[in-house]
Amino acid sequence: HDTTVHINGLRIEVHGASEEILKWIEEAARRGVEAEEIKRWVEEALK
């Protein structure tokens, strides 16, 4: 999927993410993980 995830006011563009990654992002956000940190993880995961 190409999608934009909104976390604590930060937009994260996610290209080619699976449902699993999207669920993981939402879970991390709920746990209060910094949005910048999530963004870094997602970029690494999608390389």
Rank of each mutant, 00 (worst) to 15 (best):
H1N: 12
H1Q: 12
H1V: 13
H1L: 11
H1R: 09
H1M: 13
H1T: 12
H1S: 13
H1C: 05
D2Y: 14
D2Q: 15
D2E: 13
D2F: 15
D2A: 15
D2W: 15
D2T: 15
D2G: 15
T3I: 14
T3V: 14
T3R: 08
T3E: 12
T3A: 11
T3G: 14
T3H: 14
T3L: 13
T3C: 05
T3D: 11
T3Y: 12
T4W: 06
T4Q: 09
T4I: 15
T4R: 04
T4V: 15
T4E: 09
T4S: 13
T4M: 08
V5F: 05
V5N: 03
V5H: 04
V5A: 03
V5K: 05
V5I: 15
V5P: 03
V5L: 12
V5W: 02
H6K: 09
H6Q: 11
H6M: 12
H6C: 14
H6V: 15
H6G: 04
H6P: 03
H6F: 08
H6W: 10
H6S: 12
H6D: 10
H6R: 08
H6L: 12
I7K: 01
I7W: 05
I7T: 02
I7P: 02
I7H: 03
I7G: 03
I7L: 05
I7A: 04
I7Q: 02
I7M: 04
I7S: 01
I7E: 03
N8A: 09
N8D: 12
N8I: 05
N8W: 01
N8S: 07
N8G: 14
N8T: 04
N8K: 04
N8Y: 01
N8P: 06
N8C: 08
N8F: 01
G9M: 02
G9D: 06
G9T: 03
G9E: 04
G9R: 02
G9P: 03
G9Q: 03
G9C: 06
G9F: 02
G9A: 04
L10D: 05
L10A: 05
L10C: 06
L10N: 05
L10F: 07
L10S: 05
L10K: 03
L10T: 11
L10R: 02
R11N: 11
R11D: 11
R11Y: 11
R11M: 14
R11H: 13
R11F: 09
R11I: 15
I12K: 01
I12L: 06
I12C: 02
I12E: 01
I12Q: 01
I12R: 00
I12T: 01
I12S: 01
I12P: 01
I12D: 01
I12G: 01
I12V: 06
E13Q: 08
E13D: 14
E13N: 14
E13V: 11
E13A: 06
E13Y: 11
E13C: 15
E13G: 05
E13L: 07
V14W: 08
V14I: 13
V14K: 01
V14G: 03
V14Y: 07
V14D: 02
V14Q: 01
V14E: 01
V14A: 05
V14F: 10
V14P: 02
H15C: 06
H15G: 13
H15A: 14
H15F: 15
H15D: 10
H15T: 14
H15S: 11
H15Y: 14
H15V: 13
G16W: 07
G16L: 07
G16P: 03
G16D: 06
G16V: 04
G16M: 07
G16I: 05
G16S: 06
G16N: 09
G16Q: 05
A17H: 04
A17G: 07
A17D: 03
A17F: 07
A17W: 07
A17I: 07
S18C: 03
S18Y: 06
S18P: 07
S18F: 06
S18R: 05
S18M: 05
S18T: 14
S18W: 06
S18H: 06
S18I: 06
E19P: 15
E19N: 10
E19W: 15
E19D: 11
E19F: 14
E19A: 13
E19R: 11
E19Y: 15
E20I: 09
E20D: 10
E20A: 13
E20T: 09
E20M: 13
E20H: 10
E20W: 15
E20Y: 15
E20Q: 11
I21N: 00
I21K: 00
I21E: 01
I21M: 09
I21Q: 03
I21G: 00
I21A: 01
I21L: 10
I21D: 01
I21F: 06
I21Y: 02
L22M: 12
L22I: 10
L22V: 06
L22E: 01
L22T: 02
L22H: 03
L22N: 02
L22G: 01
L22A: 02
L22P: 00
L22Y: 06
K23N: 06
K23C: 05
K23F: 07
K23I: 08
K23G: 05
K23L: 11
K23P: 00
K23R: 14
K23Y: 07
K23S: 09
K23T: 08
W24C: 04
W24D: 00
W24I: 02
W24A: 04
W24H: 03
W24Q: 02
W24K: 02
I25V: 08
I25G: 00
I25M: 07
I25Y: 01
I25P: 00
I25L: 06
I25F: 02
I25R: 00
I25D: 00
I25S: 00
I25N: 00
E26M: 15
E26L: 15
E26H: 14
E26S: 11
E26R: 15
E26D: 08
E26K: 13
E26P: 00
E26I: 15
E26Q: 14
E27K: 05
E27D: 14
E27R: 09
E27A: 10
E27W: 13
E27F: 08
E27T: 06
E27N: 10
E27L: 13
A28G: 01
A28E: 02
A28D: 00
A28V: 03
A28T: 01
A28R: 01
A28N: 02
A28M: 15
A28Q: 07
A29G: 05
A29N: 07
A29F: 15
A29T: 10
A29S: 09
R30S: 12
R30E: 11
R30Y: 12
R30H: 08
R30C: 05
R30K: 13
R30W: 12
R30I: 11
R30M: 13
R30F: 12
R31C: 07
R31T: 09
R31Y: 10
R31P: 00
R31V: 07
R31M: 13
R31L: 11
R31E: 06
R31K: 10
G32Y: 05
G32T: 01
G32L: 04
G32E: 03
G32I: 02
G32V: 01
G32Q: 03
G32H: 03
G32S: 02
G32N: 04
G32C: 02
V33W: 14
V33P: 00
V33C: 06
V33F: 09
V33N: 01
V33S: 02
V33T: 05
V33M: 12
V33Y: 09
E34I: 09
E34D: 14
E34T: 14
E34Q: 12
E34Y: 09
E34V: 10
E34M: 09
E34L: 10
E34S: 14
E34R: 12
E34H: 12
E34C: 07
E34W: 09
A35E: 06
A35C: 06
A35F: 14
A35L: 13
A35W: 13
A35I: 12
A35D: 04
A35K: 04
A35Q: 04
E36N: 09
E36Q: 09
E36P: 05
E36Y: 12
E36D: 10
E36M: 11
E36T: 11
E36R: 08
E36L: 13
E36V: 09
E36K: 08
E36I: 11
E36F: 13
E36G: 08
E37H: 07
E37I: 12
E37T: 10
E37L: 13
E37K: 09
E37A: 09
E37F: 14
E37W: 13
E37D: 10
E37Y: 14
E37S: 07
E37V: 12
E37M: 10
I38M: 04
I38T: 00
I38C: 01
I38E: 00
I38N: 00
I38H: 00
I38Q: 00
I38L: 04
K39I: 12
K39E: 04
K39W: 11
K39H: 05
K39F: 11
K39V: 10
R40H: 07
R40K: 12
R40N: 06
R40C: 03
R40L: 07
R40V: 06
R40Y: 05
R40Q: 07
R40M: 07
R40F: 06
W41P: 00
W41I: 08
W41Y: 13
W41D: 00
W41S: 02
W41K: 04
W41L: 06
V42C: 02
V42M: 03
V42K: 00
V42A: 03
V42D: 00
V42S: 00
V42I: 08
V42G: 00
V42E: 00
V42H: 00
V42P: 00
E43L: 14
E43Y: 15
E43T: 13
E43H: 11
E43R: 08
E43Q: 14
E43K: 09
E43C: 13
E44T: 10
E44W: 15
E44R: 14
E44Y: 14
E44I: 11
E44Q: 14
E44S: 12
E44P: 00
A45D: 01
A45N: 07
A45H: 10
A45S: 06
A45G: 03
A45K: 09
A45I: 10
A45M: 12
L46F: 07
L46C: 06
L46E: 02
L46Y: 07
L46T: 06
L46K: 02
L46P: 00
L46Q: 04
L46S: 02
L46A: 03
K47E: 07
K47W: 08
K47T: 09
K47F: 09
K47R: 13
